[in-house]
Simulated scan of single mutants.
Amino acid sequence: MSGPQPYRAMAHNNAWANHRLLSACAALPQEAFTAPRVGFFPTLRATLNHILVIDRFYLDAMEGGTLGPAAWADPEPCGTVEALRDAQAAVDRRLIAVVAGLDAAGLARAVSVHRGSRVQRERMDRLLLHLFQHQVHHRGQAHAMLSGTDVAPPQLDEFFATEEAGLRAGEFADLGWTEETVWGGG
């Protein structure tokens, strides 16, 4: 697997992991979602909103925008799991669309990341890897926080590695995907 295909798979896996984690969080009462917890951010709501806000920041840059630091003017734009799940799913669909349109030249192109006082130029492939790592890092923190609640944390690290398509079929249907959507013809 080479070229843009690994990035396409990562974008889908990213959306799938967000879907799983936010679906689990939907079983929490609002008080548990906003309760203080041990982590870099003090609550599940703050941690999951941080993922959303930073996704918006980097995705805007990947799409050629100039949003920059205005992206985090409101660090918790979504007060409920339901609002966050909808907003994150929309951003995940945008990321999948950006990656779906990439070829080798698109992966190597420079992206302008507006950082307020300066504009950082970064290759698309490197920016994507950074974004995926950021997601994994903070989803892991949220996963650990969720383990301190009455809701069991979902499996997040399968990366479509098993042949248990039946277990994924419902989630893939929820997301509008098939195995072909994720992996293409190969």
Rank of each mutant, 00 (worst) to 15 (best):
V81F: 05
W72S: 13
R109G: 02
S112A: 15
P4K: 07
E31C: 09
A173V: 05
F172P: 02
D74L: 07
G101L: 05
A17L: 12
P6W: 02
G79H: 11
A24Q: 14
A46H: 13
H12G: 01
H143D: 07
P153L: 04
G185R: 14
P42W: 13
E164M: 00
A15P: 03
S147V: 13
V53L: 12
P4H: 01
P153T: 03
G166D: 00
A9N: 11
H12M: 02
L146I: 11
R109I: 02
A15S: 11
W183D: 05
T43I: 07
M62Y: 05
D74K: 09
R20I: 10
T162V: 09
V98D: 07
G140W: 12
E171D: 15
M10A: 14
D86Y: 04
T47V: 04
E31F: 08
P154W: 04
R139I: 05
R37G: 01
H114F: 11
F132V: 10
D103R: 04
L95I: 04
L84W: 13
H19M: 04
H134W: 12
Q135T: 04
G65F: 09
A108V: 11
A26Y: 11
I54D: 02
Y7P: 13
A97E: 14
A161H: 05
L107V: 02
Q155P: 01
F172S: 06
D74C: 08
G68E: 00
M124A: 06
G64D: 08
L21F: 00
T34D: 10
S147L: 12
V53A: 11
I96W: 02
H137I: 14
R56A: 13
W183A: 08
A110G: 11
L84G: 09
R8F: 03
T178K: 06
G185P: 10
V136A: 06
I51A: 00
A165K: 11
H138Q: 04
D92I: 13
P154G: 01
V81K: 07
E163F: 08
N14D: 14
V91P: 00
W183R: 05
T66D: 07
D74H: 07
V182Q: 06
G68T: 08
D74N: 14
E76P: 09
A169E: 14
R45T: 12
T149W: 00
P153Q: 01
F57W: 02
Q5N: 00
L175T: 13
P6Y: 03
F57T: 00
F159Q: 07
T149C: 02
V111Y: 12
M62Q: 05
A27R: 10
A61Q: 09
L127E: 14
H50C: 01
R168N: 00
T181P: 10
L129V: 13
R168A: 01
G116H: 05
D74E: 14
Q5Y: 00
L28S: 06
P6R: 03
A26Q: 15
H138L: 03
V182T: 04
V98I: 15
H137R: 10
E180C: 07
A61C: 06
A61E: 05
P6G: 03
